[in-house]
Amino acid sequence: MKRKTKSILFGLFVGLFAIGSLVLVSCSGSSQLVTEKTGAQLWGENCVRCHNAPSPPSFNDYQWETIALHMRVRASLTEEEVAKIVEFLKMAN
């Protein structure tokens, strides 16, 4: 019984969370399509999701290419996003 209550509470948390962030995100008016975004934008939005985002000068061009492949696999990022992000990192490092 207690476990059930806990599961329900957790479900509620997830539900509320989804609604809350929906409101937050739609208020911030960022409904731009991913395909329209620049590499810099995609870097800022995606590379902070699991860890702090590494800044472009952290690595050289060749290192970025290997890291991007590693992250494409690990983070299941889309091919399009990764291509744009690498281009940005290589240009700005």
């Binding site: 989804a18 929906l22 995100v25 960022s30 731009q32 991913v34 975004k37 939005e45």
Partner: peptide, 13 residues
């Protein structure tokens, strides 16, 4: 299965 409903990638379920 991971779903990121917003283009900002802020939320993932």
């Amino acid at each position: 299965l991971g779903i990121l409903p917003f283009s900002s990638s802020a939320l993932e379920l």
